Amino acid sequence: MPHDDVPRALEDRLIDVGIGMLPMEAPGISVRDLAEGRWQLILPAAHPLAARGSIHLTDLADEPLLMFAKTMNPALYDFVLGRFRRSGVEPNVVYETSQVEAGQNMVALGVGLWVVTTYVIQGRFLEGLVARVLADFDVIRLGLAWRTADTSPGVRALLDAARYSGGS
C-alpha cells in the first residue's frame, strides 16, 4: 500500500496498523518512529563515482539506473524521478525490481547503478559493490501508524514489539 494511503485506510478500518513515510498526520491517528534512512546509490567499487563520499543527481545524467518497481509505490517512484528531473536530469531507468538480490546482481553484472534506500539494503552488499549517499535527498523517516483509540491486544502487542526493536 502506498504510504500516502495509510491514514485513509486506518480511518476506513481497512487496516489496524500501517507503515509509511513520516510525517503522516490525520485526526485520530498516532504514529511512532521506526527507522530513518537515506537514498543511496549502489555501484561497483571500481566505478569512477565510487571514489566520492556522496553523489549528486547531476552526476548520474549519463548513467543507466536501476529502481524499485513502480508498482510497489507509484507515488514514491514518481517523487524520486521528479527529484532527478528538478535537478535537470532525465533518469535513464533501465530496470525495475522488487527484490534486493536482483538489484545487487544487476549492478554486479554491469546493467546499471541502483537507487535504493539504506533501510532496504542495510549495508549488506555483494562483494565488489559499495554504497554512496545521494546528496540531493533528505533523510527519510519511517513510522508505524494506528488509530489512537484502538486498544485491541493485537495492535498493542505490535506497538510493544516496535518499541522493543528500537522504535520510540
Rank of each mutant, 00 (worst) to 15 (best):
P2I: 03
P2W: 06
H3N: 12
V6K: 13
P7C: 04
R8L: 13
L10Y: 09
E11I: 15
E11K: 15
D12A: 14
R13M: 09
L14Q: 13
L14E: 13
D16H: 15
V17Q: 03
G18E: 01
G18M: 01
G18H: 06
G18A: 05
I19A: 11
G20W: 03
L22E: 08
L22C: 03
L22Y: 04
I29Y: 07
S30H: 01
D33C: 07
L34H: 10
A35I: 00
A35P: 00
A35Y: 06
E36D: 07
G37W: 06
W39Y: 12
W39P: 00
Q40K: 10
Q40E: 09
I42M: 03
I42P: 01
P44Q: 12
A45Q: 10
A46G: 12
A46E: 15
H47I: 07
H47P: 00
L49I: 12
L49R: 08
A50G: 08
A50N: 09
A51T: 12
R52H: 13
G53V: 00
I55C: 01
I55Q: 07
H56M: 05
L57R: 04
L60M: 08
P64A: 11
P64S: 09
L66Q: 04
L66N: 07
M67A: 15
M67V: 11
F68C: 04
F68M: 11
F68Y: 14
A69E: 11
K70Y: 00
K70N: 02
T71W: 02
T71H: 15
M72A: 14
P74E: 04
L76K: 06
D78H: 15
L81D: 02
G82T: 05
F84C: 00
R86L: 09
R86Y: 08
S87C: 11
V89Q: 10
V89R: 13
V93I: 14
V93M: 05
V94P: 09
Y95K: 08
E96P: 02
S98Q: 13
E101D: 13
A102M: 10
G103N: 04
Q104K: 08
N105S: 08
N105A: 05
M106C: 00
M106W: 09
M106K: 10
V107C: 04
A108V: 09
L109Q: 14
L109K: 15
L109F: 15
G112W: 06
W114L: 08
V115C: 14
V115E: 10
T117E: 07
T118H: 02
T118K: 06
T118G: 08
Y119A: 05
V120E: 08
Q122H: 12
G123R: 00
G123N: 03
F125Q: 06
F125Y: 15
G128W: 12
R132K: 13
V133M: 00
L134T: 05
L134M: 08
A135V: 09
D136W: 14
D138A: 15
V139F: 00
R141F: 07
G143A: 04
G143E: 10
L144Y: 04
W146Y: 11
W146L: 01
T148M: 01
T148L: 01
A149D: 13
A149C: 03
A149G: 11
A149V: 02
V155N: 07
A157D: 11
A161S: 14
A162D: 01
R163A: 06
Y164V: 02
Y164C: 00
